[in-house]
Design a protein around this nucleic acid. Structure first.
Lengths: 229, 229
DNA sequence: TTCCAAACCTGACAATTGTCATAGAATCCC
DNA sequence: GGGATTCTATGACAATTGTCAGGTTTGGAA
């Protein structure tokens, strides 16, 4: 069991790689490793976070509750991503809930380690800034997609996204299995609509399913659908 | 005519305030002040930006073209905001177009001044980071609103937003007058739908209009509508 | 294994929204 | 000032999407 941040490979994927040896050591000494079971929250909307969570394993959905009682999933975060950064930097309660969609292993890093380094190590700050710039661009893309594409297109796009970002298992099913409700919360539609469209895709031979698992059968047609043909 | 950044009040509202005297001097020496007429672009989606633009006056819409040929307005930027930061930091072409919706005065700041300072002045970097964290949160909110609220609710919300952020003129009309098309691009709907709903609001006495100008008449009802009553 | 709850699925219908067509109003430019 | 162009407005209709109301299946706990 690898328990020192200095030796943690995950670090290479996020802004922690810009930390100095000493800073990392400090982080490692103060961090707490936690396991989170599927369905359990890491934190919830409105929480005041005392640190950030570095994802070592598993996948989390970041969602926000809307006035009508439905969750909107804003992002899916996987290994290497750091959750709660925005909230710690802005010194605000978090605007999102983070809930595990798979069993997870995360490292809690107290905010002092982060804020100290932010003030002293410009490379680290810049690295964090770059990550946030990337997130912001992705958020802009989501806005455009959600407002200008039909539900059908958004669902097709979601499947392609899942394949490209989380891959497939040996049998050709998407490695990340989401419930129909989660899918509908990603694309921002009613669960029934999502189910209906999934059935339609199955009938048309675009995908195949086995229980909750979904496999992509005709990627090209899905791409065409996303692009509006 | 105030032309030195050191003396520019606008600076107090953005991350430039975290710059040192010398850094500001350098920025001031290298900046170029431009005027942009209503309807003209400051930059367009896909441009490689050689710097950022600090808004001294006027308002710009930040938009992105979707596959179906419609623009989606992602943000309205006013006095004090810095445009193009994300793109310069991520060293990518810009993902958004910035077009003036009012006559504007902007200062172009070459990216070297920015990137140099980012590497040397952690306070500045942190300040930029805070601003971006704020933008990201706002983007999350937009995602939830657009996907979970009806067009009617989003239009009501847009009017309230315009009032709160840009104020009203002496006669009680919203100070920022947008075309019906821009309004529809803010809320992500067809222009005809936006027009229809505006007419409906007028009939119900929620707003009054005079040409393109729109004034809020019954703010409480609008708020209730946004919240789903 | 069996039972229960949760998740999935489908139909019927209504509400919302987009599209197309057309006409009037405002604005710009010569 | 007048004509062209763009913006606003409205009707009619179709397509999309949401809601409600049932079913069936699945998965996990007792």
């Amino acid at each position: 069991m690898e328990s020192r941040c200095e030796n943690c490979i995950i670090r290479q994927f996020n802004s922690l790689r810009a930390m100095s040896k000493e800073e990392l050591k400090h982080v490692s000494d103060s961090k707490i490793t936690k396991t989170v079971k599927k369905g359990e929250p890491i934190f919830e909307e409105g929480d005041k976070l005392n640190g950030v969570y570095c994802v070592r394993n598993g996948i989390s959905k970041l969602s926000k509750l809307s006035a009508n009682g439905k969750d909107q999933i804003v992002k899916l975060a996987t290994k290497g991503e750091v959750l709660g950064q925005r909230s710690v930097i802005a010194e605000e309660t978090t605007n999102l809930s983070a809930i595990a969609v798979q069993d997870m292993e995360v490292c809690f890093i107290p905010k002092e380690s982060i804020t100290n380094t932010l003030q002293k190590n410009p490379n680290f700050t810049l690295e964090v800034l770059r990550h946030m710039a990337h997130d912001l661009k992705e958020a802009d893309d989501v806005i455009v997609n959600i407002s200008q594409k039909t539900v059908k297109q958004r669902i097709a796009e979601a499947f392609l996204y899942l394949k490209n970002n989380f891959g497939e298992d040996e049998e050709g099913f998407l490695a990340l299995t989401l419930s129909r409700e989660d899918i509908s919360n990603v694309v921002g539609t009613a669960t029934e609509s999502a189910i209906r469209i999934i059935s339609e895709f199955k009938k048309k031979g675009l995908i195949h399913t086995s229980g909750k698992k979904i496999g992509i059968k005709d990627e090209r047609k899905l791409v065409e659908m996303v692009e509006g043909f």
